[in-house]
C-alpha cells in the first residue's frame, strides 16, 4: 500500500514535470504578445515625446517615421481608445515637425520654404520643359492649344504628330511664355497625380517674394486701382490676374503669353512635410 502510494505520487510528479514545459511555453507565448504591443505603444509614445526635443529636422522626421511605422504595426491589436489617442499624438507631432528648408516632389521639382508675414508656404523652382511635357502627353493637349497658350520662340517644345507626343530638345530649361490658363491647368494636373496640394502663388505671396528677376503668374485676380477703368472692365467683361513680372506685380489678361513668364507653384507646409517624409522613407 505504501509502495503503491509512493508510486502514485511519483507518477503524478512525472506527469506534472512532463506537462510543465508545455504549460510554461503556453504562458510564455501569451505574455510575449502582451509585452510586444504594450512595449510598442510605450515606445511610440516615447518617440513622439523625444521627437520634439530634436533640433535637427532630419532627426525629427526619422523619429516620426519610426513612430508612424510602429503605430501601423500595433494599430490593429490595441484598443480603439488607444488608437484614437495615438493618432492624435501622431497628428500633433506632425504639426510640430519643423518645416524643412526645402523639399523635392515626385517630379523632382524643388520647393523652398517662404516665411512670409502672414503664412509660411513653399514656392517651387520654375517648372522645366521636361516636367511640362509629362503633362502635355498625359493629358493629350492639342498642338493648337499650346500654340495659343505658350509664347512661340520662348520654348523648345516640339509635337510629333506621327506618335503623337511632345518632346523637348532642352529638358532642363525652365518652361517660359506660358499663359495663365495653361499654368493653372498644369497645377491642377500636378495636384491630381501627385496627391499634393499645388496652386499658383497668391497675390500676398507675390508681393512678399523679393526676387527682381522672377516672372510668374499668381492665381489672384487683379484689382485695378483706377476706379473708372475697373468699372469699365467689369462692364465689358475683362478679367485680369496678378502677373509677377521682374519683381513687380501687374494686372494682365489671362491669355497673355509673356516670353519671360515661368511656371512656379506653391504648396502648403503640410504637403511639403509629407513630401519630405516620403523621400526620407524611400532613402531609409
Amino acid at each position: 500500500m505504501l509502495i503503491s502510494r509512493t508510486s502514485l505520487f511519483l507518477l503524478n510528479l512525472i506527469i506534472l514535470l512532463t506537462l510543465i514545459p508545455v504549460l510554461e511555453l503556453g504562458a510564455t507565448d501569451e505574455s510575449v504578445d502582451e509585452v510586444d504591443w504594450s512595449d510598442s505603444l510605450f515606445l511610440v509614445r516615447n518617440i513622439l515625446k523625444d521627437l520634439l526635443k530634436k533640433t535637427e529636422p532630419i532627426e525629427q522626421y526619422k523619429l516620426f517615421i519610426r513612430a508612424e511605422s510602429s503605430y501601423k504595426q500595433i494599430g490593429e491589436v490595441i484598443s480603439r481608445n488607444e488608437v484614437k489617442e495615438l493618432r492624435e499624438q501622431l497628428s500633433n507631432a506632425f504639426r510640430q515637425l519643423e518645416p524643412p528648408a526645402e523639399v523635392i516632389n515626385g517630379f523632382k521639382l524643388r520647393f523652398t520654404l517662404q516665411r512670409g508675414n502672414a503664412k509660411r508656404y513653399y514656392l517651387s523652382d520654375a517648372v522645366t520643359e521636361q516636367m511640362f511635357i509629362g503633362y502635355l502627353n498625359a493629358e493629350r493637349v492639342s498642338a493648337e492649344t499650346i500654340r495659343k497658350s505658350i509664347s512661340s520662340g520662348s520654348h523648345s517644345l516640339t509635337f510629333r504628330e506621327t506618335e503623337p507626343r511632345y518632346s523637348t530638345s532642352n529638358p532642363e530649361q525652365p518652361l517660359r511664355g506660358i499663359n495663365f490658363f495653361c499654368a493653372n491647368d498644369f497645377t491642377a494636373w500636378a495636384s491630381s497625380i501627385g496627391r499634393s496640394e499645388y496652386a499658383l502663388p497668391r497675390k500676398f505671396m507675390v508681393s512678399e517674394i523679393d526676387d527682381p528677376t522672377a516672372s510668374y503668374w499668381s492665381v489672384t485676380k487683379w484689382k485695378e486701382p483706377d476706379l473708372s477703368r475697373r468699372e469699365s472692365w467689369e462692364m465689358f467683361g475683362g478679367v485680369f490676374y496678378n502677373l509677377f513680372l521682374r519683381g513687380k506685380a501687374v494686372g494682365e489678361l489671362p491669355e497673355a503669353c509673356n516670353p519671360e513668364v515661368e511656371l512656379r507653384m506653391i504648396t502648403t507646409v503640410s504637403s511639403a512635410k509629407k513630401m519630405y517624409l516620403k523621400r526620407l522613407k524611400a532613402a531609409l
Binding site: M235, F236, G237, G238, C257, N258, P259
Partner: peptide, 21 residues
C-alpha cells in the same frame, strides 16, 4: 517689341458680354 494682348469686350443689352481675344 513684343506681343500685346487685348480683348474686345462686348456689352449686349440683355447683359451678355461676348469676348474676342
Amino acid at each position: 517689341e513684343g506681343d500685346y494682348y487685348l480683348r474686345i469686350g462686348g456689352n449686349e443689352y440683355s447683359g451678355a458680354k461676348p469676348q474676342h481675344r
